[in-house]
């Protein structure tokens, strides 16, 4: 695939995923599967920007890992805090 097609496709997917987020935000249904979709969509959007727009897919491995790690942080924490939020809240005493 040429660089031009990659960029065009990435933008189209970013718009599609954003509209998916708008749909989920509008109807505000809870539950594990909705939260899972939000986390996955967020991770995919981040990955598209990192690999296609920033061109880190073929760049320095150190930069690629650092920025990809950043792109996974929020999706991972969305899932972790949804699944184990009350348990994590018990560890507040560590910060006191």
């Amino acid at each position: 695939m040429t660089a031009l097609r990659k960029i065009d496709l990435a933008w189209a997917l970013l718009v599609l995923f954003t509209l998916t987020g708008v749909f989920l935000g509008e109807f505000r249904q809870g539950g594990f599967w909705v939260v899972l979709v939000i986390a996955l969509v967020t991770a995919l959007k981040g990955r598209l920007v990192i690999d296609v727009f920033m061109e880190l897919g073929e760049a320095s491995p150190v930069l690629r890992r650092l920025v990809r790690g950043f792109g996974l942080l929020v999706p991972a924490l969305i899932l972790v805090t949804y699944l184990w939020g009350p348990l994590l809240a018990r560890f507040n005493w560590l910060l006191e």
Binding site: T18, V22, V35, K45, G46, M54, V67
Partner: peptide, 13 residues
């Protein structure tokens, strides 16, 4: 990229 992480936290979750 940073905004794409912020958006679900305040508007979608």
């Amino acid at each position: 990229l940073v905004w794409l992480m912020i958006f679900p936290l305040f508007y979608v979750m």
